[in-house]
Design a protein around this nucleic acid. Structure first.
Length: 428
DNA sequence: TGTCCACTGGAAGGGAGGGCTT
DNA sequence: AAGCCCTCCCTTCCAGTGGACA
């Protein structure tokens, strides 16, 4: 076989038994340690659907990585399993008090689909029939989308469980119109029933809802507490058993360290799994036969750097320029800036890159967006007679972030400006 | 105690872009 | 082709704000 760029890697020993995805947060395992209580609670609510009745609407709260989505998707899978078993027993002529086949699950992540129209369209298209046409991604009046959605759901009797994950994101962006329609849809359906499960990181988002929507939606509430280090350890051990050839591949202290680091950050299981997965990948790349704590610390740094890089790369150009302005001022020793100062720098950068600048009003919003992404830290502060404005501080590594921004071809790097103009600007 | 600064942030609306309807 | 719908990104307008200072 001819030597190829991949050859040496293909022959190197891998510590993984098979499916690397087992260590991904999106993988739903057979056992969800320390969430049995919540699985049972939700199952007791959802069993109503299996009897052909409408279960109560449920709101699930909890911070990131506390297992909310995993539990809901776990239950969805169990319903699917029940459906398959039901088909088998029907073939054997057995009768059941449950009508599992009529239960339909629709899962929507509102961080991805975050508009009123988008949510309705996605639900509607889940119930495509031979007679119905695909709802286009834009173009139809809202009223028509809603009517079509109702017709599709009501065509055959069923109990539809709609899961709206990251619901707070949808409410923050598009208000509660979708929830208003979906929560009153049952009064307009003849054959079918709809139940809603809302999942949110933010306990307080219901404050922004219309009181009618709030009461209809929050018939049942479930709060998921964060995991502690011991619980995270159990979760990791469960997956390690499945993912690796042998437990000798990994020191016990590696799992404990991943769990401890993730527990420091509000008990985030997603974080713990990422740490474990990336540590293993690093060990593999370094061709080590064992994963050790050093790999975990390297993984921690890599995850943090990747997060920042990803966030910066995907910013729109003007947001990049605003961040660039903050970075360059920081480089020149100004670690605390006001909106006015950032705006002045931003305008200069726009001029040098040959772009029209946006208004200061828009830049205030962009600064708030950068703050939300954790790239800067902005808080409103009053300087007395010198006015009231945001005080902005950088919260990402200066050098790496500058280099990432300068990768954007539409932005002229400041070093180039120096040689091009050979004159001092305010920023340089 | 009132003034004043440098904004903040809500509200309204414009216009471009993608698409459907008649 | 003209008219309409929805979303997104942006501008314009403007009342409101916290606290230093006279």
């Amino acid at each position: 076989m001819q030597e190829n760029i991949f050859t040496s890697y293909m022959h190197s020993k891998t510590v993984f038994k098979g499916d690397k995805d087992i260590l991904r947060p999106s993988y739903i395992p057979e056992v969800l340690p320390h969430r049995e209580e919540y699985i049972n609670e939700l199952a007791s609510i959802l069993v109503t659907a299996l009897r052909g009745n409408r279960p109560s609407n449920v709101l699930i709260f909890g911070k990131t990585g506390t297992g909310k989505t995993a539990v809901v998707r776990y239950l969805e899978r169990e319903v699917g399993r029940l459906k398959r078993e039901n088909t088998k027993s029907e073939l054997n002529g057995e009768l059941s008090e449950f009508d599992v086949d009529r239960v339909e699950y629709v899962y929507i992540n509102c961080e991805v689909v975050d508009t009123h129209y988008g949510v309705m369209k996605n639900i509607g298209n889940k119930f495509m029939e031979s007679w119905s046409e695909q709802i286009p991604f834009t173009g139809w009046p809202m009223e028509k989308v809603y009517e079509s959605l109702k017709q599709r759901i009501d065509k055959k009797p069923k109990v539809v469980v709609i899961i709206l994950d990251e619901l707070d994101k949808l409410v923050a962006k598009s208000g509660d119109t979708v929830l208003y329609h979906l929560s009153k849809i049952n009064s307009e359906l003849k054959n079918s029933k709809v139940s809603l499960i809302g999942i949110s990181n933010n306990l307080r988002f219901t404050e922004f809802l219309d009181p009618r929507v709030r009461s209809r939606l929050g018939e049942e509430k479930v709060i998921f507490p964060p995991y502690n280090a011991e619980q995270l350890k159990d979760i990791l051990n469960e997956r390690v058993k499945k993912a690796f050839d042998a437990e000798q591949i990994m020191d016990e202290e590696v799992v404990a360290l991943c769990a401890a680091l993730a527990a420091q950050e509000h008990g985030d299981a997603r974080r713990a799994l990422d740490l474990l997965r990336v540590s293993t990948e690093i060990a593999e790349r370094e061709r080590c036969s064992k994963v050790d704590p050093n790999h975990v610390y390297k993984a921690k740094n890599k995850i943090e750097q990747d997060c920042v890089r990803e966030a910066v790369i995907t910013l729109p150009t003007h947001s990049k320029l605003v961040l660039y302005s903050i970075l360059l001022s920081h480089k020149n020793g100004h670690d605390k800036l006001t909106t006015g100062e950032v705006y002045a720098g931003y305008k200069e950068l726009c001029a040098h890159s040959g772009m029209d600048s946006l208004t200061q009003r828009r830049i205030t919003d962009i600064i708030s967006e950068l703050d939300m992404l954790g790239l800067v830290n902005a808080r409103v502060k009053s300087f007395g007679r010198r006015g009231r404005t945001k005080e902005i501080q950088l919260s990402v590594p200066e050098r790496d972030t500058i280099l990432t921004i300068e990768e954007d071809e539409s932005i002229t790097p400041v070093d180039k400006l120096k040689t091009m103009e050979s004159k001092q600007t305010r920023l340089i």
